[in-house]
């Protein structure tokens, strides 16, 4: 076979590898531009989707708010103690408007870890990661979060704590929009549990366990630094945003 033909064939084979290489590259590298849409099918239909723009409504939102002055069925929230933490709109309730069971406290712990621990830390002492970062960034506008196990909070009626979660206080924003009422009460129950555990003394421990605790002093590090029990505890290094 004449050499030129062999060369042409070899070049063809070599060229055929280029698209393969390009494809491999696109496969392993992030795609920052617009999405590659090869077959449209019915991928994009003109029905209303959550959190999207709407051409139909004047304000451009596809998700609609209630018309003002209306209440959806089942959302009247008549129970003032449960929904607002107050009795007759004047005094904070001192009793939980729901039965506090182990499940409620567990749920409260889970929700506390999600919504409260970033600032107040897992132990409630106020040395959470957001506080650590704000301190590391030397934010002048930052007010340290309250120690939830302090006497001030211990003395507050449960309705007051519920109200604070719902509407916020000082620098703390309102968490009503993020946490449903029942979960807010669960969090209040867990805050009470934290207060009990953080302010417990050896006398609170049942006698049989107390003996075991006294036998091994290093295990009871009551005087541990406040940030010692948060995850990591060390502030993140300042790396811009």
């Amino acid at each position: 076979m004449p050499r030129p033909i062999i060369y042409v064939l070899l070049v063809l084979v070599a060229l055929s590898l280029i698209p393969v290489g390009l494809m491999y590259k696109s496969r392993v590298s992030p795609k920052e531009g617009t999405r590659l849409q090869i077959v449209y099918d019915m991928d994009h239909q003109s029905y209303v989707k959550p959190q999207t723009k709407s051409e139909f409504f004047a304000d451009g939102q596809s998700m609609r708010l209630h018309p003002s002055g209306t209440v959806a069925r089942g959302q009247l929230q008549e129970n003032s103690e449960f929904y607002r933490g107050v009795i007759r709109d004047t005094t904070y309730t001192e009793v939980f408007p729901l039965e506090v069971t182990a499940e409620v406290v567990d749920r409260g712990q889970e929700r506390f870890e999600i919504f409260c621990a970033p600032c107040h830390s897992s132990s409630g002492n106020g040395a959470g990661m957001v506080h650590a970062r704000a301190t590391a960034l030397a934010e002048g506008t930052w007010t340290p979060p309250t120690d939830l196990t302090s006497q001030t909070v211990v003395d507050r009626p449960v309705g007051h704590i519920y109200h604070t979660i719902t509407h916020g206080i000082r620098n703390m924003p309102a968490y009503g929009p993020q946490i449903p009422p029942k979960d807010r009460w669960a969090i209040v129950a867990y805050v009470r549990a934290l207060q009990l555990s953080r302010n417990a003394t050896l006398a609170d421990v049942s006698p049989d366990v107390r003996a075991a605790l006294e036998a091994e002093p290093p295990a009871v590090s009551v005087a541990a630094p406040p940030a010692g029990d948060t995850t990591g505890g060390t502030p993140t290094q300042n790396q811009g945003e």
Binding site: M23, T34, L36, I38, I114, P118, E241
Partner: peptide, 30 residues
């Protein structure tokens, strides 16, 4: 694998999950 995986469009604000979740330990559900 080729058209979808790795899709990482630029966002209006360069929010970093690496910082908020990875380093600060925030839960997804926050």
């Amino acid at each position: 694998q080729n058209s979808a995986i790795g899709y990482a469009p630029e966002q209006p604000v360069p929010y970093s999950h690496e910082l908020h979740v990875g380093r600060m330990g925030m839960d997804c559900r926050y």
